Computed example of a mutant assay.
Amino acid sequence: MAGNLSNPAFTFNLKIGKFDIHPTAIYPVFLAGALIYLFSVICNGTILGLIVTQRSLHKPMFYILFGLPLTDLMGITVCLPRVLLDILTETNDVYYPTCVLQGFLLHFYGGSIPFLLAAMSVDRYIAICDPLRYNSIMTPCKVCGIITLVWGLDFTLILVLFSLQSRMVKCKSFITNVYCDNPSLLLLSCGGDMTVNNIYGLFITAFIQISSISIQLFSYTQILITCIKQTHADSRVKALNTCIGQIAAFLLFEIVTTIAIMSYRIPNISSNAQRICGLMIYTVLPTVNPIIYGMKTKDVRIAFVLLLKKHKVSPGKNTPAIKNRK
């Protein structure tokens, strides 16, 4: 932050990029975005509520899974409402400290998902490949350690990234994207040597991707080998079904992030299309993820159905009894 104050030409009141939308399409676009946000909040909130309230989900797997809908809620809340408000009001003003906070949280969100998916794959590896020792290995203390490692490592990596960015002297006042991120904040600087920033940015991207993919590849390969060795088809199917949701969430993350990254490499792509591709990370993932691991995770599905039945049946249970007593 000191670098910003050292340049008298820099102002904390910035302009941020916006979508080129026809005036007649502003309200439909805003409504569609608001519905997407509401749907995501309901779905992720439901998953969180089920894990907290249903005793059948009080297991190590779901304690780790709890982080996914939590980060999805953070990602879409930090990004989408602000973009929708700018579309509705047709303004593009942003305060620099608010912009830095948004960028930090969005990068924190993007880094936490692959780490969480890696942690979940390790849990499934132990549960399927070494089931007799699962409870002794995945103790509450070790589960807390895994969760702390995931969040702590991600927080530290992103904190260093933004500390390096904050040392750059700023003199520009336009954020090129529709939301704030580290590359856009770096473009506010008056030049200077960005070698360290670029190297570290590439390092954490590679580190997060390679470590996450390696852990998941190892875990799911071992799970597949174990399933092939299973003599009972039912046991094989049951074991694979516990991993489907996590694998699907991982593939979705990789596909969406690849599309977003590639959009910046495609020549002659419109600014609207490029911004939509970037926004997909913070809208598609938080909207689709809870559906994937809600529908594909059997315990979550059963807990949700039982909760619905309980609320439907409970009022009616007393009615026949009252009639019989009469």
Rank of each mutant, 00 (worst) to 15 (best):
G3K: 00
T205W: 10
I261M: 11
S121Q: 04
D234Q: 11
I213T: 12
A239E: 06
G33H: 08
L149C: 12
R325E: 13
I128L: 07
T46P: 06
L164Q: 08
F250A: 09
V100T: 05
S184I: 00
N241I: 00
L105R: 05
I281M: 08
Q54S: 12
I223H: 06
V52P: 05
M1P: 10
K238Q: 13
S184Y: 02
L187G: 13
I26F: 05
Y134W: 00
K310R: 13
L70I: 03
S6C: 04
P140F: 09
M1D: 09
L187K: 14
I259Q: 04
T156D: 06
L306S: 13
Q222H: 14
L202F: 15
N7T: 06
C43E: 14
I146N: 06
P69G: 06
P69Q: 02
T11I: 01
Q165A: 14
A249H: 11
L31P: 04
I322S: 15
L308W: 11
A25H: 13
I137E: 02
K323F: 11
T287I: 09
C243H: 03
F10M: 01
D299N: 10
L80H: 07
I269F: 06
F10N: 05
I302R: 14
G3I: 00
L308Y: 07
Y125G: 00
S184C: 03
S212N: 05
A233N: 13
P114W: 05
I223V: 13
L186W: 10
F10W: 03
I51P: 04
I16E: 06
E90R: 15
L68D: 11
C141P: 00
I158R: 12
K323L: 14
N197D: 11
S40M: 04
C79F: 08
L252E: 14
K312C: 14
S219R: 07
I276G: 07
T231E: 15
L117Y: 02
I47L: 14
R133V: 04
V122C: 10
L240S: 05
P315S: 00
V305T: 11
R82N: 15
T283P: 09
I223F: 03
Q246P: 01
L70P: 14
I199F: 10
Q274E: 12
F155Y: 13
